[in-house]
């Protein structure tokens, strides 16, 4: 298990290098001259040419890629063109908020998706099943930004229960404070988190619930479920210990893959709820054509996604004894 984990972590290096090349290549293809962007429309041509030289933009592409690699190895993602800060610093300051939102959404989506899927499978063909699958259909087809606006309108504007935009204290600090007997901070942080997390979770919850339902229906027909019942076990135990544990195996890998879609959804959700994370930063960076920043963000997203899927693979092996990690 340990050897496998280390090998998988080492594999991230060539994967990361591939990601770097791809993001670098994409930005080469995007039209627009960063030097001209930085200096504005009125800038004289000589000034632009001088800036291009000093930024190294006139060098051939392989030289620039090589330089980028060398810098990355030292943890340097370059300087942002418009905020006079290193890209790595900017991203690091925002990463926590996005991870917090994505993890909250993933937990919420799993909880909703799994319970709906199980209930629907247990009552296949009943009105509960129909209702759950209607919900799933809605969740899959409703765009994140639309749902986000509806939630904001309903719960923040009309009912006034939750704040519409912004973020409370980081969850780590809030949890720490709550542990030391000061829960107000946690309540506040959660009140900010609920709406964006829910908006972001809905799509994944819908996908997961359909998957769990199908998987449960299949597993409930398995012989070992009948064996469990023949032992006289009570129904809840048969369903949870025997059926659900097996039904979740295929769902687990899908949850990992959904995390990618979740990061994409986070870009929209964060913009709508003014959540100060990487997604919001992405939109700002793109509209400003802050190329080093875009490059850094995309690379960060890719690495987070790869790490999450590594965790899912390890989890899979922990849950299914038939998977041998050789």
């Amino acid at each position: 298990m340990l050897a496998y984990t280390i090998r998988r972590l080492l594999l991230l290096v060539p994967m990361g290098a591939g990601m770097v090349v791809v993001t670098f290549g994409l930005l080469l293809l995007i039209p627009g001259d960063p030097a001209a962007l930085m200096l504005g429309q009125e800038a004289p041509a000589e000034a632009i040419a001088a800036l291009r030289r000093s930024l190294g933009l006139d060098d051939p592409w392989h030289l620039r890629l090589g330089r980028y690699f060398l810098a990355l190895v030292q943890g340097d993602m370059g300087m942002s063109l418009f905020q006079s800060q290193p890209v790595a610093t900017i991203i690091w300051g925002r990463l926590g908020a996005t991870v917090e939102l994505a993890v909250a959404a993933l937990l919420l989506a799993s909880a909703i998706g799994i319970s709906l899927g199980v209930v629907a499978a247990m009552r296949q063909g009943s009105w509960v099943d129909t209702l759950a699958m209607l919900f799933a259909q809605l969740g899959v087809s409703m765009p994140v930004y639309w749902l986000a606006l509806l939630l904001m309108l309903g719960f923040a504007v009309h009912l006034g229960w939750l704040p519409a935009v912004g973020r409370g204290a980081p969850m780590s600090e809030a949890l720490w404070a709550a542990l030391r007997g000061r829960p107000e901070m946690l309540v506040q942080s959660l009140s900010y988190l609920v709406l964006p997390a829910f908006a972001l979770a809905m799509n994944a919850a819908a996908v997961i619930s359909r998957l769990v339902r199908a998987s449960m229906l299949e597993v409930l027909r398995e012989d070992f479920v009948r064996t469990a019942r023949a032992k006289g076990l009570r129904r809840p135990r048969v369903v949870v210990r025997h059926a659900l544990r097996n039904a979740l195996l295929p769902v687990l890998s899908v949850i990992g893959l959904r995390f990618g879609a979740l990061l994409g959804g986070a870009v929209l959700t964060e913009s709508i709820f003014a959540w100060p994370g990487l997604g919001q930063l992405t939109i700002a960076a793109i509209s400003q054509r802050d190329l080093p920043l875009i490059q850094g963000i995309v690379l960060t997203f890719a690495i987070v996604f790869a790490l999450v899927n590594l965790v899912v693979d390890l989890l899979y092996a922990a849950v299914d004894p038939r998977v041998r990690l050789e």
């Binding site: 012989d223 210990r241 544990r245 097996n246 195996l249």
Partner: peptide, 29 residues
């Protein structure tokens, strides 16, 4: 079921839960 009347199933390959040890499955009964 499982206490006064018990059943031995046909397919030992599929009649056991793949993600539980056989000891745990017996101990459960």
């Amino acid at each position: 079921r499982g206490s006064r009347i018990a059943m031995v199933f046909q397919e030992p390959m599929t009649a056991l839960n793949p993600v539980m040890t056989v000891g745990a499955q017996i101990a459960e009964a």
